[in-house]
Design a binder for these strands. Structure first.
Length: 106
DNA sequence: GGACTGACCAACC
DNA sequence: AGGTTGGCCAGTC
């Protein structure tokens, strides 16, 4: 029943794919939603697969900085285009668009 | 089959 | 204030 057999790996995609437009999540935040607040590494590694269906540009570091190697600037432009507010430092405004996750009480 | 790595985070000194 | 380590999961050598 229900889909829980999915590995930690697969659930990362579920969360990232569920992030609404104009909001972002940090690696550790996603890991925490999965039940392992220290599995941020695994989350980052899951994103390393970089599936086209996965809008991983909405996933940023705890500081709000965008990851992704040389494409960091590109991802940042994509987020701005989606309506995500940025700071003058080039970081995501986590204070304004940090997603609370799939809240059941919405 | 064992050990290392990987786009991280937070605690510790 | 800054550097190091431990922890999580899965894939690769």
């Amino acid at each position: 029943m229900c889909k829980q057999k999915n590995s930690f790996f697969d659930r990362v995609y579920e969360i990232v794919a569920a992030i609404p437009c104009g909001q972002v999540l940090s690696y550790g935040r996603i890991a925490a939603l999965l039940g392992s607040p220290r599995a941020a590494r695994t989350v980052g590694w899951a994103l390393s697969a970089c599936p086209e269906d996965l809008p991983w540009q909405r996933v940023v570091r705890a500081d709000g900085t965008v990851a992704g190697g040389a494409y960091t600037e590109l991802r940042r432009a994509m987020l701005i285009d989606e309506g995500v507010p940025f700071l003058l430092d080039g970081r995501v405004d986590m204070d304004a668009c940090e997603w609370d996750g799939p809240r059941k009480n919405v």
